[in-house]
Measured scan of single mutants.
Amino acid sequence: CHSECLGNCSQPDDPTKCVACRNFYLDGRCVETCPPPYYHFQDWRCVNFSFCQDLHHKCKNSRRQGCHQYVIHNNKCIPECPSGYTMNSSNLLCTPCLGPCPKVCHLLEGEKTIDSVTSAQELRGCTVINGSLIINIRGGNNLAAELEANLGLIEEISGYLKIRRSYALVSLSFFRKLRLIRGETLEIGNYSFYALDNQNLRQLWDWSKHNLTITQGKLFFHYNPKLCLSEIHKMEEVSGTKGRQERNDIALKTNGDQASCENELLKFSYIRTSFDKILLRWEPYWPPDFRDLLGFMLFYKEAPYQNVTEFDGQDACGSNSWTVVDIDPPLRSNDPKSQNHPGWLMRGLKPWTQYAIFVKTLVTFSDERRTYGAKSDIIYVQTDATNPSVPLDPISVSNSSSQIILKWKPPSDPNGNITHYLVFWERQAEDSELFELDYCLKGLKLPSRTWSPPFESEDSQKHNQSEYEDSAGECCSCPKTDSQILKELEESSFRKTFEDYLHNVVFVPRKT
C-alpha cells in the first residue's frame, strides 16, 4: 500500500485506493498535508475557505447554543480562536489581540433580562453583547459592586439597553466600559436606550469621564423622579442622539420631579488639616426662599486615587461607600458681607490618608415646582503625618564578641513616609551569675543571650482551647457569634421535631 494509506488498500502504491488515510483526505486521495488554498479540518480532512465560511455563517444565523462559528488559524479551520487571539470578521482569520481579548457573548432569543446578581454573573467577562440587555433589578445585597464585577467589562451592545423598574439602582456607572450601543435591534418605538419607572436612579454616568455613542435609535425617559433633566440632556449631547427624540420621548413632568437638581456650584473657602482632623468651610448658599434650606450634607471617604465619582458603590438597598454628615444651616444675616460661612470639623480620621470630599445642599421643593440647590466639586484632601507606631517583631542576635545583629519589621501604621529608623542602645553591667558559677561542674549549661522565638506554653494553649472559665478566673470563653447562636437554635429545633416524629412513629394507638 501507499505510504499515506492506513489499515489496508485495494490497489498497491495508489493513494486513492486506501481504506483510511494516515494524515489527511483531499478529493478522494490521501495526502501528507493540505496544500494551499485548503485548510486542515478536524485533523483528517482538507477543506477550502468557502466550506469553513459556510459553517461560520450557519452557526451565526441559527443562534443555536453550542454550535461553533468556525475560524481560520495556522492553516486550520477550527471552532474558535485560541487564547490571546480574536477573529477578523472580513476573512475569519485569528489575529493577536492588542491588550485583553474581546469576548463576544451571543444571547438566546436576542435579549437577556438581568433581574438578579445570579443572572448578571452569566455575563461575567463579556466585552461584546450580541443582542439586547434588559435591566430589571428590584433589590439585593452589595448590588453596585456585584454588577460592576460582572457587567463592568461590557464595551458594546449590538441591540438596545433597557432599564425598567430597577428600584435598587442609583447610577449606571457599573457599566464602566460601555462605549457603544449599535441599535441594530430596537425596542418598540425605535428606541435604543429605554429608561422607565426607576424610582431611585439619580445618575446615568459621570459624563466628564465617560463617552457613549448610540449609532441608531432614540432615547426614552419616563417616570424617573430623581433623575434630573440636565442629566438626560447631557446624554443626548454626548451620545449623538440630540435631535432624534420626539416631543413625548422625554417626559418633562415625570423626570426629576422629586430630585434636588443642583444648578449652582458650592466653593470651599477654608481648608485646614491635622493628622486626624480636617476643618472645612464653604461659601454660604440661600435659595430664593431661605426657609427652603434644610441644611447641608457632607460626604467623605478614603480615596487612594483621584478618580472618585459621587455615586460609586451606591445602591438604593443601603450600600453606600460614603460617610454622610448632616449639618444645620448657619444663622442668616441681613448683611451679605457678614454672612457666616458654614463648615464642619471632621474628626477621627487616619493620618497621612487622602480623602475625597464634597458637600451639597438639602432643600425642600418650592411652590413653583422649581428645584434649587448647590453642590461642590469633589475635592481631595490629605491629612498630615504623625509619629508612626512601633516597629514590629524586633530580633537581636550576637554573632561574635563585638557585634549584635538587630532586625525588625516595619510598623503596622507608618502614618507617613518613613525615611529612617533611630536605634538606641545602652551598655549593661555583666551578670554576677557568670562569676559565681563553678565551671568545672559536669552538665553545666552556660547562660545564653542568643534570641529564641517566643512560644506559647501548654497552660496558655489549654486556656485558649477551654470553653469555660478556669477556677483562677484568668480566662473566659469568647462570646458566641450570631451565626453560632442561630445554628444552635436550628439544631435544637431539629432535635425537638425529630423526637416528636419518633414518638408518633414508635407509639401507635392500640386498636379498641
Rank of each mutant, 00 (worst) to 15 (best):
Val104Leu: 05
Cys105Thr: 02
His106Trp: 04
His106Thr: 11
Glu109Ile: 10
Gly110Ser: 10
Gly110Lys: 05
Lys112Ala: 05
Thr113Lys: 12
Thr113Met: 13
Asp115Tyr: 06
Asp115Arg: 10
Ser116Leu: 02
Val117Met: 11
Val117Ala: 06
Thr118His: 14
Ala120Met: 13
Ala120His: 04
Glu122Val: 06
Glu122Trp: 13
Glu122Lys: 00
Glu122Ser: 08
Leu123Glu: 01
Gly125Pro: 02
Cys126Trp: 00
Cys126Thr: 01
Thr127Ser: 14
Thr127Ile: 09
Val128Glu: 04
Gly131Trp: 01
Ser132Met: 01
Ser132Phe: 00
Leu133Val: 11
Ile134Lys: 02
Ile135Leu: 03
Asn136Ala: 05
Asn136Val: 08
Asn136Thr: 05
Gly139Thr: 07
Gly140Ile: 14
Gly140Glu: 12
Gly140Tyr: 12
Asn141Lys: 09
Asn142Val: 09
Leu147Pro: 01
Leu147Cys: 04
Leu147Val: 02
Leu147Arg: 02
Glu148Ser: 14
Ala149Asp: 11
Ala149Pro: 05
Ala149Met: 12
Asn150Gly: 08
Asn150Val: 01
Asn150Met: 13
Leu151His: 04
Leu151Ile: 11
Gly152Ile: 01
Glu155Arg: 10
Glu156Met: 14
Ile157Val: 12
Ile157Phe: 04
Ile157Arg: 03
Ser158Arg: 11
Ser158Pro: 02
Tyr160Met: 14
Tyr160Pro: 01
Tyr160Glu: 05
Leu161Ile: 12
Lys162Ile: 03
Lys162Ser: 10
Arg164Cys: 09
Arg164Phe: 08
Ser166Asn: 14
Ser166Ala: 04
Ser166Met: 15
Ser166His: 05
Val170Met: 08
Val170Arg: 08
Val170Cys: 11
Val170Ser: 07
Leu172Glu: 03
Ser173Phe: 09
Ser173Cys: 10
Ser173Ala: 13
Phe174Asp: 02
Phe174Glu: 01
Phe174Leu: 06
Phe175Asp: 01
Phe175Thr: 04
Phe175Lys: 03
Phe175Ala: 08
Arg176Thr: 14
Lys177Gln: 11
Arg179Ala: 12
Leu180Ser: 11
Gly183Asn: 06
Leu186Glu: 09
Glu187Asp: 15
Gly189Tyr: 15
Asn190Val: 14
Tyr191Glu: 11
Phe193Gln: 02
Phe193Arg: 02
Tyr194Phe: 14
Tyr194Leu: 11
Ala195Glu: 02
Ala195Arg: 02
Ala195Leu: 11
Asp197Asn: 14
Asn198Pro: 01
Gln199Asn: 11
Gln199Met: 07
Leu201Phe: 13
Gln203Val: 10
Leu204Asn: 07
Trp205Pro: 04
Trp205Val: 09
Trp205Arg: 02
Ser208Tyr: 12
Ser208Trp: 11
His210Tyr: 15
His210Val: 11
Asn211Leu: 09
Asn211His: 10
Leu212Pro: 04
Leu212Asn: 01
Thr213Ile: 07
Thr213Asp: 12
Ile214Met: 14
Ile214Val: 14
Ile214Ser: 09
Ile214Gly: 04
Thr215Tyr: 10
Gln216Leu: 06
Gln216Ala: 14
Gly217Leu: 01
Lys218Met: 06
Lys218Thr: 11
Phe221Val: 10
Phe221Pro: 00
Tyr223Pro: 03
Pro225Ser: 03
Pro225Leu: 01
Lys226His: 14
Leu227Trp: 01
Cys228Ala: 02
Leu229Ser: 10
Leu229Pro: 04
Leu229Gly: 06
Ser230Lys: 12
Glu231Met: 13
Ile232Met: 05
Lys234His: 08
Lys234Thr: 14
Glu236Gly: 04
Val238Ser: 13
Lys242Ile: 08
Lys242Ala: 07
Lys242Val: 13
Lys242Trp: 08
Arg244Val: 11
Gln245Phe: 06
Glu246Tyr: 11
Glu246Cys: 06
Asn248Phe: 09
Asp249Leu: 14
Asp249Glu: 15
Ala251Phe: 14
Ala251Ile: 12
Leu252His: 10
Lys253Pro: 14
Lys253Ser: 13
Thr254Glu: 04
Thr254Ile: 12
Asn255Trp: 04
Gln258Ser: 09
Gln258Trp: 05
Gln258Phe: 02
Ser260Asp: 04
Ser260Lys: 03
Ser260Pro: 04
Ser260Tyr: 02
Ser260Thr: 06
Ser260Val: 07
Cys261Glu: 04
Cys261Pro: 01
Cys261Val: 04
Cys261Arg: 04
Glu262Val: 01
Glu262Gly: 02
Glu262Ala: 00
Glu262Arg: 01
Asn263Thr: 11
Glu264Lys: 02
Leu265Cys: 07
Leu265Met: 08
Leu266Arg: 01
Leu266Ile: 04
Leu266Gly: 02
Lys267Pro: 03
Lys267Ile: 15
Ser269Lys: 12
Ser269His: 13
Thr273Asp: 01
Thr273Ile: 12
Ile278Pro: 01
Leu280Val: 15
Trp282Ser: 01
Trp282Arg: 00
Glu283Ser: 13
Glu283Ile: 06
Trp286Met: 02
Pro287Thr: 06
Pro288Gly: 02
Pro288Asp: 05
Asp289His: 02
Asp292Gly: 03
Asp292Ser: 04
Leu293Thr: 01
Gly295Ser: 03
Met297Trp: 06
Met297Gln: 09
Leu298Glu: 01
Leu298Tyr: 02
Phe299Ser: 02
Phe299Thr: 02
Phe299Ile: 12
Lys301Glu: 04
Glu302Gly: 15
Glu302Val: 07
Ala303Ile: 13
Ala303Pro: 07
Ala303Val: 15
Pro304Val: 09
Asn307Trp: 10
Asp312Asn: 13
Asp312Gln: 03
Gln314Leu: 11
Ala316Asn: 13
Cys317Gly: 08
Ser321Arg: 13
Val324Thr: 05
Ile327Asp: 00
Asp328His: 08
Asp328Met: 15
Pro329Ile: 05
Pro329Tyr: 00
Pro330Ser: 08
Arg332Asn: 06
Ser333Tyr: 05
Ser333Arg: 14
Ser333Met: 07
Asp335Asn: 07
Pro336Ile: 03
Pro336Met: 03
Lys337Arg: 06
Ser338Gly: 13
Ser338His: 09
Ser338Asn: 08
Gln339Ala: 08
Gln339Gly: 11
Asn340Leu: 10
Asn340Lys: 14
His341Ala: 11
Pro342Glu: 04
Pro342Ser: 05
Pro342Thr: 09
Gly343Cys: 09
Trp344Gln: 13
Leu345Thr: 04
Met346Tyr: 06
Met346Leu: 09
Met346Phe: 07
Arg347Pro: 09
Arg347His: 05
Gly348Leu: 10
Leu349Phe: 05
Lys350Leu: 07
Lys350Ile: 06
Pro351Ala: 09
Pro351Ser: 06
Pro351Phe: 10
Trp352Pro: 00
Thr353Ile: 15
Gln354Leu: 11
Gln354Ile: 09
Gln354Glu: 09
Tyr355Phe: 13
Tyr355Glu: 01
Tyr355Ala: 03
Ala356Tyr: 02
Ile357Arg: 02
Phe358Arg: 05
Phe358Cys: 00
Phe358Lys: 13
Phe358Asp: 01
Val359Gln: 01
Thr361Gln: 03
Thr361Glu: 04
Glu368Lys: 10
Glu368Tyr: 06
Arg369Asp: 02
Thr371Cys: 00
Tyr372Leu: 04
Ala374Val: 02
Asp377Met: 09
Ile379Trp: 07
Ile379Ser: 07
Ile379Val: 11
Tyr380Gly: 04
Val381Ala: 04
Val381Cys: 04
Val381Ser: 07
Val381Tyr: 14
Val381Arg: 13
Gln382Asn: 12
Thr383Met: 04
Thr383Ala: 06
Ala385Val: 06
Thr386Gln: 03
Thr386Trp: 09
Thr386Phe: 08
Asn387Met: 15
Ser389Tyr: 02
Pro391Ser: 01
Pro394His: 03
Val397Gln: 12
Ser398Cys: 08
Asn399Pro: 15
Ser400Trp: 05
Ser401Asn: 15
Gln403Thr: 13
Gln403Phe: 09
Gln403Cys: 09
Gln403Ala: 12
Leu406Ser: 01
Lys407Arg: 14
Trp408Thr: 01
Lys409Cys: 10
Lys409Glu: 06
Pro410Ala: 15
Pro411Phe: 02
Pro411Asp: 01
